[in-house]
């Protein structure tokens, strides 16, 4: 049983303390939904969890071992979907997805696997279309199709339902449910209802979660 936990996390952006004293613990198969107003630090927290930024305080651990000790092992077990959909306009949808999969797995993916992943979001017919012709929702679907090709333990999703229609939202829910059934973990930020069964909530507005200090201007202790 793996366990992903954070204790006493603090984040400083610019000179502003975004949150501090934040803690959570996730076991295999669990989901954590991050809530809070714009600027409350949901994206910043997800970037900390992905290892893209270092926490100003506190520690993150996987099975009790600090992830700062072995960042490569942490990167190998997570998949992060941020705000941007990194599609290259000149490459077709299938080429984009195949590149991400090759980057992730370190090997070429079979074409059938690429199409299967696209079909998870009902965009298999777009496989040969260059990225530049896609709508915002379609781009999002292609980006989320990464989840279907990479079997990793931890998914970090930053407002995954942005620009998605109801059907694609349903596909995402099904994908997350299957991932959790396999023992995977999910941390997702959202403004709308994701509808994940038995998901834990972490509200970054709540003083209890954030240590009671918000919007304070502090000097940065580097």
């Amino acid at each position: 049983m793996s366990r992903f936990a954070g204790t006493d996390l603090a984040c400083i952006r610019g000179e502003r303390l975004v949150f501090q004293g934040l803690g959570f613990a996730l076991d295999a198969g669990q989901a954590l939904v991050l809530g809070g107003a714009n600027g409350s630090g949901k994206s910043s927290l997800l970037r900390l969890l992905a290892g893209l930024a270092r926490p100003a305080g506190g520690t993150l651990s996987w099975d009790g071992a600090s992830i700062a000790d072995d960042p490569d092992a942490h990167r190998a077990r997570l998949l992060y979907v941020g705000h941007a959909d990194p599609l290259k306009p000149a490459l077709t949808v299938a080429e984009n997805l195949a590149f991400w999969a090759a980057l992730r797995a370190g090997r070429r993916l079979a074409d059938s696997a690429v199409v299967a992943a696209l079909d998870a979001f009902a965009i298999g017919r777009l496989a040969g279309v260059p990225g530049r012709y896609l709508s915002a929702g379609q781009r999002r679907r292609v980006n989320l199709a990464r989840l279907a090709v990479s079997p990793v333990a931890l998914w970090l999703l930053d407002e995954p339902t942005t620009a998605l229609d109801a059907a694609a939202g349903e596909s995402l829910r099904a994908l997350i449910a299957a991932h959790r059934a396999r023992g995977g973990m999910v941390v997702a930020s959202t403004h709308s209802e994701l509808g994940l069964d038995g998901a834990r909530q972490l509200n970054l507005d709540a003083p209890a979660a954030a240590g009671g200090i918000k919007e304070n201007h502090v000097s940065v202790p580097a």
Partner: peptide
Amino acid sequence: DGSLELMAL
């Protein structure tokens, strides 16, 4: 477009 973030991860 976020590709660099992806590669860094």
